[in-house]
Amino acid sequence: MYDKSLVVDILQQISNAIETIQKRFEPIKTVNDFTDTPEGMEKLDSICMLLIAIGESIKNIDKITNKELLPMYPQIDWKGAKGMRDIISHHYFDIDAEEIYNVCDTKLKSLLSVIKDIQKDLSY
């Protein structure tokens, strides 16, 4: 058995990071809002840093739970989330702003919902 309280703490950190990304992403309406101004690039950089933290935290959950917890929630592409972390970390100068935009626009809401579901499930 794994340390549920540790996993719950990590899930809360992921939840907080997603909510921070969502706040920072609110004024971004197009990819150009990231790329055309220094302020947009700062937002892109800060969002990428949090995406790295989320991916690393997901990897840690897999490690702590012997890869048994996350597969119970197949609606999320966990491998993709971890892969995003690797791409941003190791190929930072080749980051595709459009891909980051798409992740923020289409993936984070469902990830947050599932993270909250996992938190609830582990609270029982």
Rank of each mutant, 00 (worst) to 15 (best):
P38F: 08
I18E: 01
T20W: 09
I28P: 12
D45T: 14
R85L: 05
Q119M: 11
E42W: 08
E56G: 09
I100F: 00
E19Q: 12
S110H: 09
K120A: 14
I52R: 05
F93Q: 13
S46R: 13
L51A: 05
L11V: 09
N66L: 04
N66M: 03
G83F: 03
D96Y: 03
I64P: 00
M84L: 15
G55H: 10
M72Y: 11
Y101W: 12
S110V: 08
C48K: 03
M1C: 11
K63I: 11
Q119A: 10
I61R: 00
K23V: 06
H91Q: 14
S5H: 12
F25W: 13
I14C: 10
V8I: 15
R85F: 06
W78C: 01
G40V: 01
G83P: 07
L122I: 06
L122W: 06
L11G: 05
L112K: 02
L51K: 00
C48A: 01
R85I: 06
I54M: 00
Q12N: 14
K43G: 07
S5R: 15
K82N: 08
K29M: 04
F25E: 11
G80T: 07
T30E: 09
Q12I: 09
E68V: 04
I21W: 05
K67N: 14
P38Y: 08
P74W: 02
A97W: 00
G55S: 11
I118Q: 01
D36F: 10
D105P: 00
L69G: 03
L51S: 01
S123W: 05
F25H: 12
